[in-house]
Structures are given as structure tokens and as C-alpha cells.
Design a protein around this nucleic acid. Structure first.
Lengths: 141, 141
DNA sequence: CGGTATCCTGTCGGATACTG
DNA sequence: CAGTATCCGACAGGATACCG
């Protein structure tokens, strides 16, 4: 049996399935569908209205945007401000807690820059490996 | 228009919807359903066989486990080794590329430790705020 | 404007059965 | 053991219409 040498991930003695992966809850909260683009947009463009978000994220439907915003608000990552005017105005901004994700996202961006090309190459290698005449990668790039 | 003061997230001039969130692809690759537990398990327990993974992750079905493992293999995050014996033996281990995620996961763990309680509190606050007599949180904790 | 309500479809993942 | 194949139900998310 082989144990990884790096101690960056610490093993929790696995009794439960969930406990086997301590970061599962965070992933649920932060990396659910649409939440990342929403948080990103709110952080980069600051406080903005519903329609602005809708337009910037694009392809998201108002229904889903509402759902995700409510969820993020409930989780304390986003602050919703309702202005009782006519027409009504609602503004969303990232909370302090939400902002605390910034370094994490930066790290993620860094990893993407460094390694996404590798992922791409791995994919092409994998795909061409299955091909009949794929043994000779003379064609393609 | 308000620009956030921290430069940790750098804005890409938003033309495209996808470009609006540069980390979306990474999220797809690393934080898809089940991938995080799988990577975590592979990293903490080292190289292991299909059944071991199946047992450790628990509640995952063989079908889905296979799907995700194939995907991770294709993305170059996991290495699959097939031993042509009887009975057949297949071992999975995390790749170098996969291991490069370790610091990221560590950060995630750290964030979880520091902030998950806050998320929990935010949720309870949000939930009780909607309640009729929720103004007096005398009951409950 | 900022949603909610309703309907409807596509996809993910579970259950089960079977193979090399 | 390590999967694949097939069926099937749940539910996320889209389209549309409407409201305060």
C-alpha cells in the first residue's frame, strides 16, 4: 500500500462516506451550478441589479438566477438590497464572507492557467488513443 | 459603477458569457459531481482498486464510478492500470497533474474550517427571519 | 423592474441484470 | 473482479405567461 508523500491533504480516518471527503460541503455551496459565475460577476463588477447580472451571465434564465441568488443569500455569500421605489430596484452585492473566497478563486485561476492546456492535451491523447490509426499522430497538430 | 478594490480576481472584459467566468472550465473538470471525493480518496489512500474506491466512497454506484473515473482519466487527472490476470485487476492512482490540485484542496479545507460555521449561522438566520414569531430567537439553541 | 407560477423536457444517476 | 447494458424515475433547468 502506498501513501502519498505530501501532507497537504490530510486523511481523515474514513468511517463515513461523507467524512471521506471533508470538502464536499464547500463544493456544494460554492461550486454548484451557476454559483461560480454569479459570485465571480458580483465580485468583479461590484454591486449590481438583477438585470445586469442576467445580462452579464447570459444564457441563465431569470428563474434559475433567482433560485441561485436566494441560495447564495441564504448561505451568507451575497447580500440582497431591496429599494421600495417605482419601478422597484434590487441590488445584489457580494458579502464579506463571499469576498473571503477571493484568494481561493485566484488560486483556481492560477491552476487553470498552468494546467488547463495539459488537460486539453491529455484529452486529445486519450481520444486519439482509441482511434484505429491513432497510433501515428502525424496528422492533427 | 463600482470596482472592487482587491485585485485578487482580475476582470476579463466581458464580451462572452463564458469568458465572464474564467474558472468555469476548471470547475467543470474538478468539481463535477463525485469527482472531488474520488480525487480526494485517491490522493489520501494512494493507488487502489475499483472495489476499494467503490467501498470507500460508498453510495456511489459502479456505473457512475466508472463514468467519472473514465472522465478523470481522459482529463489526465487519474491513471488507470489494467493487469491482465484472472481475476482481472485494475488499479487507479492520481496522476502528477491530479496531485497538483493538492494545495488547492488544502485551501478549500482551510476555508471550510474557517467559514462553514458562518454559512451555517447565516442559514439559520435566514430561515428564522422568514418565520412569523422568528423575531425572538429564544427557542432553538 | 424583479420576480413568481406553471408546464415540460433532457439529463443524471439509481436499480438491476449480465459478461469477460 | 471490473465492469457494460438497459430501463427508469427524479429533478434541474428551459420556455412561457403573468403579477406587484
Amino acid at each position: 500500500m502506498r501513501m502519498p508523500d505530501n501532507a497537504t491533504w490530510t486523511a481523515s480516518p474514513d468511517g463515513d462516506p461523507e467524512r471521506a471527503c471533508p470538502i464536499a460541503p464547500v463544493v456544494d455551496i460554492v461550486f454548484s451550478r451557476w454559483t461560480t459565475p454569479i459570485l465571480w460577476t458580483l465580485n468583479t463588477h461590484g454591486r449590481q441589479r438583477f438585470v445586469e447580472l442576467e445580462r452579464r451571465i447570459a444564457r441563465i434564465t431569470p428563474k434559475v438566477l433567482t433560485q441561485r441568488l436566494r441560495q447564495l443569500e441564504r448561505d451568507g455569500l451575497v447580500v440582497r438590497t431591496y429599494h421600495a421605489e417605482v419601478p422597484p430596484r434590487v441590488e445584489y452585492e457580494i458579502s464579506e464572507l463571499g469576498r473571503s473566497l477571493a484568494p481561493l478563486f485566484a488560486h483556481l485561476t492560477e491552476w487553470a492557467t498552468d494546467n488547463l492546456p495539459k488537460v486539453d492535451r491529455a484529452r486529445h491523447a486519450y481520444d486519439s488513443a482509441g482511434d484505429p490509426a491513432g497510433s501515428l499522430p502525424s496528422a492533427k497538430r
